[in-house]
Structures are given as structure tokens and as C-alpha cells.
Design a protein around this nucleic acid. Structure first.
Lengths: 208, 208
DNA sequence: AATTAATTGTGATATTTTTCCCTATTATAC
DNA sequence: GTATAATAGGGAAAAATATCACAATTAATT
């Protein structure tokens, strides 16, 4: 009955939980002890019962008339979503976006460690970006194996997207976070997340 | 019956349509004339009837046994989602991410024109990034009014996120694309899209 | 010309997600 | 102490979304 391969939470729930986490981080900085579902709901402009349902999935209990203990809830989300089991990743493509993501130290707070970058330009190879070395792309298979890295953040120009994806798959990368405006063709055992920036933009500007 | 303020398409549909558009762009580059719903579905690992349902919303008709005319379908998506009516935007925060987005020329293909950047650092003010001028943030209200800009892409450090949002709202900005890991408190008439990068990352790495 | 197989379009069904609504609880005000 | 109002928790209903199933069409094959 309890299929261990089944995801525990839907994508929507995970997405909302990380937004609750952002709010809770802010509450911590402001030293506020309690948070209520209507407060969270108002900030995100969603229904308060939705917030309670999500939180109840974490087996987190609140106090009537008071709300939830902000610190506990924050830690509970971190534990549930695995922030404290860091995952290592490579950035493929040390251009503008790749560099920006390499400098985005917030990733580490959410359990994502960028170990290195890869590029094919000799201008970039052997430089450092935010203390992370840029290697030639040919070094990737070796380093991925040695460091057991399964996650690649792909920020190459669109014309190299598919060929790069093929190379990553051959190098035993299992997760590709695709920042190129391309849909990749990969085997079924590879997880791809299309960071569909324009789709997101249209979602919030279209007819509102 | 036909409420003109009602959105025609759900967020999910818009998101998928932009992914279909990515695929179609690739088909154009490869000079492939026809595309079928099972082909699209296989790339995105979704159901083919889902693809047909989405496409039928565009009043696009396909040919049995052949599929859809790739160029027509692409143009239909562009027309429907308004790629050809460009929208002007400002980038707020000329740091790494802001600069990367200013250099991301793909936005223009999707109807988003970045006119200028704003920052409060004198080191950045009056420089140019990809031919776009960086202005001091104090110039924003004037320029937003003169140029009728309603969209702001926010890439400031998290500690300045809320104060910046307040300032944008006062400056009559109506749409905030929020790249900071913060949930903003804004009036109900302001649209915010939280580009929740870590949420997206967790969605595709969590228990898969 | 007949057959086969691939594809669209769509109604029906199933599933997922969200919202509604009510009860129990409890801090605060009176 | 009692009343009030805000909140959590959770079952039920509603809404949204995705999948299934199949008839109709048609290009390709025989």
C-alpha cells in the first residue's frame, strides 16, 4: 500500500513549502515567534486552509488561537525537504547566467552545493568564479565519477543544448536543470527540469 | 457569459504552450514541416491527448495521420500568448543575476524588452550592460512614468527586497518578477511572480 | 482498390487539487 | 469567571486537471 518509490509530496506542495520557508526565514530575522495560516495565506494570496493542509502533511501541529512556532515549522520544512543533506552539482556553461548562478550563495542554504563549472572556452577554463574552478568540459566525466556528482545545471547557449545533454547523459549525470530555452531529448531515467523562464513570465503577465 | 477579464488559459496551459514553442523553434531550425502530438508528448514525457487538448484551445486544426503544420502552430502560439506585442520592463539590481538577465537576449523573442537597469551603487550607475543603461534607483519613478513601464524584474539582495518592492509600488509598477528568495508584501492590485528557484530545484530532485 | 496503421478531436471518466464549512480549542478582553 | 474572537484541524464538496477510449480521417502499403 505504501509504495516507497512514490513521491510523498506533489510538486505543488513542495513549491508552496519552499515559499513558506522564505516567509519563515524572514520571521526569524525579525524575531517573530509565531506564524498563523491566515498570515501566510495573505502574503501568498492563497486560501488559509490550503496552508493548513500543507503544514499538516509535515505532521506539524499548531496552537489554536496562536498559530505555529515559526522556528519549529522552518526546521520541519528543512528536514522534510532535505535541506540538510546537501546535494552536489556542476554548472555547465560559465557564461553570464552560469556565473550568476555560481555566485548565488543562497543555493547552499537549500542544500545545493555547486562544486565547479565547466566550459569549452579557453578564456574561461582555469579561472575561478566565486572560488569555484572552471574546468574544460572534457574533464567532466572523470570529475563526475570521482566526486559522485549526478546533478548538472545547464546554462549553455541554446545551439549546444542537446549535444551537451547527450554528453551529460553519457557522463552518468542523472538530473539536468535546464536553463536553456530548449526541450531536451533524454532517456527516461534522466530527470530534466526545464527552467522555463518565459513561460513563467507569461503566466503572470498574461491577461491579468 | 464571456467575461473579458477572465483569463483564457490556465497557468498550466500557458506553461506547456511555451514548451511546445521551444520544440517548434527547434523544428524550424531543422526545417521539419510537421509535428504530431505523440512527438511533443514524448519529449515532454506527458500524455499525447494532453497536447491535443492544449492545441485545440488555440483553434488550431491538425491533419489526421500527419499532425500539425509546425510553422503555423508556432505562429499561432506566438499570436495567442502575445509575443508580438512587446512589453517593456526594467531590471532592478545590476548585480550578477540582473546583469545576466540583461544579457539574455532570448527575452526579446518572447515579447519582453528590457529597457534599462537600476541600482544604488555609484560603481554601477552610468555603466552599460548589453547596451542598456544602468540608472540610479532614484530615477525610476520618473522614467517609469515617461516610458509607461509597468514591469520590474527584481534581482536585489534579499535584505532590500521588501523596501524595493514598496518603492516599486509607489512608482506605479504593476508587475514584479521577483528573483529574490523572499515573499513580498504588496497591495492586491500588484501582480508578483516569485521565481522560486529553490522550489523548482527541489521539485525535480525530491524523491525521484 | 482494399487494407493497414497513425493521427486528430472529443466526450466520458478518473484523479488531483482547492475551497468550503464546521467543530474544538484557547488567548484575550471584559 | 465569562464572553469573544481567532485559530487549527479535518471531512465534504467543488473545481480543475489529466487520462482514457474510441470514432473519424487519411497517408502509406499491398
Amino acid at each position: 500500500m505504501n509504495n516507497p518509490n512514490k513521491k510523498k509530496f506533489s510538486d505543488k506542495v513542495i513549491n508552496r513549502l519552499t515559499l513558506y520557508h522564505c516567509i519563515l526565514t524572514d520571521y526569524m530575522l525579525r524575531n517573530i515567534e509565531f506564524i498563523s495560516s491566515p498570515q501566510i495565506a495573505a502574503l501568498l494570496k492563497i486560501d488559509d486552509s490550503q496552508v493548513r493542509k500543507d503544514i499538516s502533511l509535515l505532521n506539524n501541529v499548531g496552537k489554536c488561537r496562536v498559530g505555529y512556532i515559526a522556528r519549529d515549522l522552518k526546521e520541519n520544512i528543512e528536514k522534510t525537504l532535505g535541506f540538510e543533506k546537501p546535494k552536489d552539482a556542476f554548472i555547465i556553461g560559465a557564461g553570464n547566467l552560469g556565473s550568476a548562478l555560481a555566485k548565488y550563495d543562497n543555493f547552499a542554504n537549500y542544500g545545493l552545493n555547486v562544486l565547479a563549472l565547466f566550459d569549452n572556452s579557453s578564456l574561461k577554463v582555469d579561472t575561478k568564479i566565486n572560488d569555484k574552478q572552471v574546468f574544460h568540459i572534457s574533464k567532466l566525466p572523470d570529475l563526475a565519477e570521482k566526486l559522485s556528482v549526478e546533478i548538472a545545471i545547464m546554462t549553455v547557449p541554446r545551439e549546444f543544448a542537446q549535444i551537451t545533454a547527450d554528453f551529460l547523459v553519457k557522463s552518468n549525470i542523472k538530473y539536468i536543470w535546464n536553463f536553456t530555452p530548449t526541450v531536451l531529448f533524454v532517456p527516461n531515467n534522466i530527470q530534466v527540469w526545464n527552467e522555463n523562464l518565459m513561460g513563467n513570465f507569461l503566466q503572470f503577465t498574461y491577461q491579468k
